[in-house]
Design a protein around this nucleic acid. Structure first.
Lengths: 126, 126, 126, 126
DNA sequence: GTGGTCTAGACCACG
DNA sequence: GTGGTCTAGACCACG
């Protein structure tokens, strides 16, 4: 359910964090749902277990998941923390673009286009 | 006119690129305008001249400025390339956020809020 | 009477130890009182009996309870050992905080606040 | 200036975090002061650089330090975050002890004793 | 089996 | 030189 882009400049562990957060934000993963064991996910993604462990450690510190010794990691109570990973980056870029002179209309147009494309691809109302 | 945030995770040279692009996008710097010599800008910012030189090299590679040996660097013909530095990052984040389940309405709200704040601070119509 | 927090970083067996010690310190459990059979408590808490057995083993080793083969476990003669489980951890943290520069007044304030809150919730004079 | 207790149950990276936070809380390290390079501190402590890097990564995520590429790590603007590492653990233990029946007077006595001892050892008024 | 910690060693970007 | 990332492999506590 999570995909990694080794090409990109974003570190793998952050991509994993965003992947998990995305599943939570979309409602695929719900409170107290178990997320894949670090070693299992690492094998699926073809990467080192430590990298997944690092991602899980960050998610736990951020209060997005909690770990139970010997049992695994589980989705914590959802308080919008998972969404922040996406809205904060978006807001930051919006601020930069607006400050650089990109007009409000252009930003809105981009959002509309992205959402329209997403609706075609992903399907389903939102 | 350009400020550098050493705290941030964005490398200085990229901040310089965005700074120059912003001045162009806002119309402060126009076609064939001379941009500050690398050493001068470096001194102003209190950073290593090599870092500014690197930024200028990238801007030239991207066709945003052109350099004339012994004369300096100048703003190239504006074809929206400078804006792309901001709109591309913005679009990328919008795509990520929407794919992660952030609803269209939330994205629009964020844009509106950012623009409203910017209008208060920066002043002037756009 | 004992509750387990699977979320926390404290292992379950230690939480059980503290739970039993708390009941003794508060006087709910008195000398020679029988404590619940490991299997019974395990069922109540919904955890593995081995975990409870491990806790009881530690409490016995610490001289807080004693076990009679075929009869069960009982509260040993109270010599302040049960309280130590709490005062030692508290003293350790107090020492760390003071050494780190937290002023005496702040520590006192925290204690007063915690006790005030506890009095409201738990009720009863102490 | 930081010491590590390999014996203890507290992970080394957390001891390093507390060590740095303590220096900040005590005022030894001030805003924008540079903290030792990860590799240097690792060598001093006789441990692996990765362990120190982990600690620094956590401190940066917690907003206690900030890192500058190629320059090092520096103390961030002090907003009481460093102190929290100590007061939170202390308050948690105070709450546990009080709930377990340790009377307010005993807790106060412990604090007073710890502070009195610290004053003798460390010297200096606080 | 599970997560947590640590070591050893490598490579990278930045400056 | 500095921090950041990742791999490989090990050992541990918990249950």
């Amino acid at each position: 359910m999570i995909t990694i882009d080794v090409t990109g400049r974003a570190p793998m562990y952050e991509q994993i964090c965003r992947g998990i957060c995305g599943e939570i934000a979309k409602g695929v993963l719900k409170e107290n749902d178990r997320i894949p064991a670090a070693r299992v996910l690492a094998k699926e993604l073809g990467i080192n277990p430590n990298t997944v462990a690092k991602a899980y450690g960050i998610l736990e510190r951020d209060g997005i998941i909690y770990s139970v010794a010997g049992k695994g990691c589980f989705v914590a109570k959802h308080e919008g923390k998972a969404d922040k990973r996406f809205t904060e980056g978006f807001e930051q870029k919006a601020r930069e673009a607006y400050a650089a002179g990109v007009p409000r209309e252009t930003l809105i147009e981009i959002v509309e286009r992205v959402c329209a494309e997403g609706r075609q691809n992903g399907g389903g109302e939102r």
